[in-house]
Design a protein around this nucleic acid. Structure first.
Lengths: 123, 123
DNA sequence: AGAACCGTATTATTCGAGTAATACAGTTTA
DNA sequence: TAAACTGTATTACTCGAATAATACGGTTCT
């Protein structure tokens, strides 16, 4: 069963996008594996304190990306293969890296400054 | 005159927040200095293709943080001192670093993986 | 078979971001 | 002095995110 214990809602971006991003990162990190059972829309909405429709929106978009599988009436499961994982891994890592690099360059940091900063806060 | 040439609107977060973040990062990076003249609300709104009220909201919040100064009828100017710069610098850098570290940890990267990734994309 | 789940769909409502169109008073500058 | 700017304020509107309350039909399990 996929766990959302490590998930917390932040503000600044839509909740359904945060859920999608969380699931993708867990798939990349191996916390979520192919075939894992997902919590139902109703259960997860109660757990996170949000509306069932918000969960449905996130699940629906994950299904459209081919990362989970839903059948009317039945439970939903994670459905990924190596190709899908590699694809979203490249997408997310590149996106994160370019974002942080852009921010730090804008603030006048050198490459060495940036590396030192990551090292410092990586407990 | 403060330039917004390097600024582009992304979606995912409110425009006024993006403007505030851009100005702060430029102040930290030295692109924007104390005493610099800011483009007027009307001019910047036309330049970015957004509503004047959106610019006004960003400028107002920057003024409430003590980073710019506005007087009715007159032009607006950047007003920062070393203490203010140091304060927002610490805020932004720590925030950015912790965000990227959290994301990469979630994706199963080691500290070395993360450092290698930054080096790779830092052209 | 029947209860208890499940995914899916619909409609109405709230709320904040952003737009749009003005208006007014103060400053700058020719 | 008068035109052309400036910051500031107000009201009404659109639009998407999220809520809320249901409803329907399929699956699972006892």
């Amino acid at each position: 069963m996929v766990s959302f214990d490590a998930f917390t809602i932040e503000d600044g971006s839509p909740i359904y996008l945060q859920i999608i991003l969380y699931v993708k990162r867990c798939i990349i990190g191996g916390t979520i594996a192919d075939g894992d059972e997902l919590p139902s829309r109703r259960v997860l909405s109660a757990l996170l304190g949000v509306n069932p429709n918000t969960i449905q929106k996130a699940y629906r978009m994950l299904e459209e990306e081919g990362l989970i599988q839903s059948h009317s009436g039945a439970k939903s499961y994670v459905a990924t293969d190596a190709a899908a994982i590699a694809r979203i891994r490249a997408q997310l890592l590149e996106n994160d890296a370019l974002n942080i690099i852009n921010s730090m360059k804008q603030m006048g940091l050198t490459r060495e400054d940036a590396l030192a900063l990551i090292e410092k806060y990586w407990e």
